[in-house]
């Protein structure tokens, strides 16, 4: 689906009511015919960004494929909260095998569909950041290498939430987790560690890579829809705040997902065959403190003597992203 820029002067905000859009441009979720692929009744915490992200992503994929989706899930919160058998929230064929093999299982499903002449069936692999950037990384890279016709979606809540909030390679510096305690001279996760899997995915030269945030659900749907028009290996990395692990209020999930983007800490972009093709511009740039402060995992930065040096280093990371991904509208901000 082509995106068409539309200007709305009447609202004064950047939100857009579906009513103002053409029917085919409206949110999948606004459609009565949406598939509810991840149905209500699951056991996610209140305000779970992962549940929200998965619901939007999979419904969009369903719409884009005429409801022919098979999903392969890694172990993690999404897997556990969605299938408290005898209940399951999945309205689509869904398999969970192991923590570290979702991408390979998806390759297998894809191969079976190919042999059976079912090119219409689209395969999605999905997992948390731990299942993607750490333990499932080998299988993920193998799937990218072979350019298998699989869309991999990583729901990044920046730690191993299902096992009680331990550090993963997607945990940001200074964040407190159960294994990066807020103790000692350098409390929280250390600087200089971690990996950027969207960039690593791009280095494989796969046809499509995108990042998304649950604060920008329309953008998320559009990226999933775009990914579904492409054949071969595709990767979407979605930032999904976790109230429990981040020590944040459930009603702040969307706000934090937005602030992560507006600070520049979580750049939103798309890439094709290893080249960045677009990035979402930041419209209200905010300092990183605004994003960090509402989260208890960063509380140690805001004690009696605020950790100015650490905050400056985090701000530097945001600034670097803004330059690197051209996140500011250059016309307005020079």
């Amino acid at each position: 689906m082509e995106l068409q820029p539309i200007k709305f002067y009447q609202t004064g905000t950047f939100t857009v009511g579906n009513r103002l859009l053409d029917a085919d441009q409206r949110s999948v979720q606004a459609n009565m015919e949406r598939t509810n692929s991840l149905n209500s009744g699951h056991r996610a915490c209140q305000g779970c960004g992962e549940a929200l992200g998965a619901r939007y992503a999979i419904d969009a994929a369903m719409r884009a494929s005429n409801n022919q989706v098979i999903a392969c899930n890694a172990t993690g919160c999404l897997e556990v909260f969605s299938t408290p058998y005898p209940e399951t929230s999945w309205q689509i064929p869904w398999i969970h095998s192991l923590f570290g093999n979702a991408a390979a299982v998806a390759t297998g499903v894809m191969a079976a569909m190919k042999v059976k002449g079912r090119k219409d069936v689209r395969v999605i692999a999905q997992g948390g950041d731990g299942g993607t950037t750490d333990i499932g990384f080998g299988c993920l890279s193998g799937m990218f290498d072979r350019n298998d016709d699989v869309l991999y979606i990583c729901y990044d809540n920046q730690a191993y939430m299902n096992t009680g909030v331990q550090r993963s390679s997607a945990t940001p510096p200074a964040a407190r987790t159960a294994t990066t305690m807020a103790l000692g001279p350098e409390p929280g996760a250390v600087f200089g560690q971690g990996k950027n899997v969207p960039l690593i995915a791009m280095a494989h030269g796969i046809p499509y890579v995108a990042t998304a945030s649950v604060a920008y659900l329309r953008d998320l749907e559009a990226k999933v829809s775009r990914a579904m028009t492409v054949r071969g290996a595709r990767y979407i990395h979605i930032l999904v705040p976790c109230p429990l692990g981040w020590g944040a209020a459930p009603h702040d999930t969307i706000k934090l997902a937005r602030l992560a983007v507006e600070t520049g800490l979580f750049p939103l972009f798309e890439a094709e065959h290893g080249e960045v093709t677009s990035s979402n511009k930041i419209r209200h740039r905010v300092p990183v403190e605004e994003y960090l402060k509402p989260q208890k995992r960063f509380a140690h930065l805001f004690g009696k003597t605020p950790a100015v040096d650490t905050l400056a280093r985090i701000q530097e990371m945001a600034d670097r992203n803004i330059r690197k991904f051209r996140l500011m509208d250059e016309r307005r901000h020079g």
């Binding site: 098979i70 392969c72 398999i95 095998s97 192991l98 093999n101 390979a104 299982v105 998806a106 390759t107 297998g108 499903v109 894809m110 191969a111 079976a112 569909m113 059976k116 299988c139």
Partner: peptide, 9 residues
């Protein structure tokens, strides 16, 4: 793991 996916499909 690929075998698991293929067989399940």
């Amino acid at each position: 793991s690929v075998a698991i996916g293929a067989s399940a499909a």
